[in-house]
Simulated assay, not measured.
Amino acid sequence: MMISYLFEFLLVLLLIIANTTLSAYIPQFSPSFGKQIMKENAWKNKLDSQLSSTEIQNLSQIKKFLSDFGYLKQDVEWFDNVLDNETISAIKTYQQNFNLKVTGNITIEVLKHMSFPRCGVPDLNLDNGFDTPNVAWPKGNKWFPKGKKNLSYGFLPGSEISLEMMIVLKNALTRWSKATKVISFTETKYDDADIKFGFYYFGNRTEDVIVGYTFIISQQNSKRKSGEICFDGSESWVLPNDDHIWSWQIDFETVAMHQIGHLLGLDHSFDEESVMYPTILPSQPIKVELTLSDNQNIQQLYTQFNPTSGYVRCFSFFGSSYGLSSSLLLGFVFAFLFN
């Protein structure tokens, strides 16, 4: 597997940064890793040697990632380190979806992409993933009664949602309301709301990259359902009035637009310009305006689509989030190669 000298240089540079300014984000690293990485391309040689074998150290973590996001259908309590045909197929599908070079191997490019912040809703196999019978991933707008045009929303008490964040959420709802041309939203108490917003602290290792997710809850002894939108309470969120987005921060409005889109019936899109793209790319840390395809998809669910109206092109913020993606990438690479 050929990797450019430029990328090797950048990886070494990122390591130096990680051992200084980014050390707080990668507590599991030690100075010995730096010597191992920089000595005679040890990291590259070990990756190459492992890919020539059917069993790869720490492949189980990658399998868990692929399973959590719908690429592997294995219903098991733990994953082994064997690179079997099912895993190769899952890697290829992931590479195809995200426009990466399709090899079926766990390349640096794949590890880098897996390290980017992303939505917790699976990309595929939405029928899997919940053991609780009254909880499900969003699958279209069938969760609320047919013909219902007004959805209520509320904020989780004690979730410390600031007034500025509430305004962002209300503006996001308004933007989607205009796009559907049918659905409107009204604020109410949290317990009575159709859509519930809240901040939570996510638990497992895969969720290190998750910044928000959405699911549907069916209330017990009742036909009523509610849509739950959960934001990561540990993130350093950026609001529209902030002057700059730092490398370790996540734009709140971008995540809000994406999650509301799920509740209105949209699946993930693999168009990098779409607000429904699963991953926050370093080149597009802020993405809140609907593309032509976003408008078309939502209006096909609710109204007759008119291609001459309602089109607002996406934009990219000039800041960079490479610091965040770099720290996560290094975490993946080190855990994968040297644990």
Rank of each mutant, 00 (worst) to 15 (best):
M2I: 04
F7W: 07
L11T: 15
L13S: 07
L15S: 12
A18D: 10
N19M: 13
N19R: 06
T21C: 06
A24S: 11
Y25M: 05
I26S: 04
F33P: 00
G34N: 11
M38Y: 06
M38V: 15
N41H: 15
W43D: 05
K44Q: 13
L47T: 08
S49I: 13
N58D: 03
L59S: 03
S60Q: 11
S60A: 12
Q61S: 08
F65H: 12
F65K: 10
S67E: 03
D68P: 00
D68Y: 14
L72E: 01
L72W: 05
L72T: 02
K73G: 07
Q74T: 13
D75V: 00
E77S: 15
E77H: 11
N81D: 15
N85L: 09
E86I: 01
Y94N: 09
Q96I: 02
Q96V: 00
F98T: 01
N99L: 06
T103E: 10
G104Q: 09
N105L: 03
I108H: 15
M114C: 06
C119Y: 08
D123A: 14
D123Q: 14
L124Q: 13
N125D: 09
D127S: 15
W137N: 03
W137A: 03
W143R: 11
F144P: 09
N150W: 00
L151E: 04
Y153H: 08
P157N: 09
E160S: 12
I161Q: 13
E164L: 12
E164F: 06
M165D: 15
I167S: 13
L169R: 12
L169D: 04
L169K: 13
K170M: 04
K170A: 04
A172M: 12
A172E: 11
R175T: 12
K181N: 10
V182Y: 08
S184C: 07
F185R: 14
T188C: 11
D192T: 10
F197N: 01
F197Y: 11
Y200M: 02
Y200L: 00
R205I: 04
T206I: 11
T206S: 06
D208A: 06
I210H: 02
I210E: 00
G212E: 01
Y213L: 15
R224E: 10
K225I: 07
K225P: 03
E228V: 07
I229Q: 11
F231Q: 01
F231H: 03
F231P: 00
G233P: 04
S234N: 05
V238W: 01
L239I: 08
P240T: 09
S247P: 04
E253S: 14
T254I: 09
A256Y: 08
H258V: 02
H262N: 07
L266M: 13
D267K: 14
D267I: 02
F270Y: 08
E272N: 05
E273Q: 14
P278E: 10
T279P: 00
P285T: 04
E289G: 04
L290Y: 03
L290P: 05
L292E: 13
S293N: 11
S293Y: 12
Q296A: 12
N297H: 13
L301I: 15
P307C: 12
G310I: 08
V312W: 00
F315W: 02
G323V: 02
L324Q: 05
S325Y: 08
S325R: 06
S326P: 00
S327T: 10
L330H: 08
G331K: 12
F332D: 02
F336H: 15
